[in-house]
Amino acid sequence: MSKTATMRKLNNSRHFLFFLLLLSFAACKKEEYAIPDPVSELSNDCIKRTLGPNIVTLPIEFAYAMALPKAKGKLVSAQVEASIAGAAGTFLENRSFYTKSNGADTGITIGSPSVNDGKITKVTYTVDTSAATLRYFYVIPEEARGLSVSFTFSATSSDGKTASFKMGPYAISKMHMVKNMAVSNNNNAYISIENMAVYNSTTAVANAGKIDLVYLYRATPTAFTHALVSPAADPVYLPGVTLPAGVNRSAKVNKVFNLQDRNLANLQYGIYIDDKDFQEINLQTAPNYALGLKAEAGVWVETTDGKYRAYIFVNSVNANGSAVISMLRYTL
């Protein structure tokens, strides 16, 4: 091969490599954001705003957005149909919210207050608007416990069009919840998981067969402090306690720390206890007492008859021998 031919071949290779390099630069070019096509007719969208398990008596919140081009008309009504009618307090906002630059949600009234008719909650627009986002608060009814619920959001516009959006199904928890029960040493000290209530030594007698735990506070030994002890536990863990007649059950108790369920902890923290936690926890080898409880500690409990599992969260403690507790209970 002549020197000229070799040179030409080398040049061709260089051109080819240069071309490849240019191509790779072009391939890596960032795509510019393109404004999406505006909607040409009534459109809608929805998000679920609440997180965590869906517990009976608590609301599930949605934000439902609807809009149509101004030239096509205005919004006439919006409604939500739930597969199971919501409990009292279920409503669809008659205000459309937007977020101010300071982050505050600001509502503008767009219609009359919502009307509940069985499974349907409806708002009729009273202002001339072609776009709105309405919040929907579905208070979970007792009938939905352990079932699932789904929703159909729909909007109608003055041009006769209807748009709808399905959400769900959402599983409704089997858990029961009671918050902020005050317990105190030698007074309101008898806790029933079944009744989800606290009794004193007099009222405990009437519910003797349902008392699972006794709250007590002892300054010594230093490791004792605030405790939840089964009536049937070794008397060494019930010093100075005279149990009411018939109070003799034994529950399995497992102490935990840093498990601050958001609902029990009054909307602090981002941790949720769900049905699955109760289904999966193994308390077979757990003792029947828990000593040294602090604020924000908790205990998993299983009743002696195996009917219930519960999580008792210690909201606060007081060195005078009292505490505030909250409870989630799951029926097995």
Partner: peptide, 9 residues
Amino acid sequence: VFFGTDLKN
């Protein structure tokens, strides 16, 4: 260990 420690777990 502290008084009342559950040594099974």
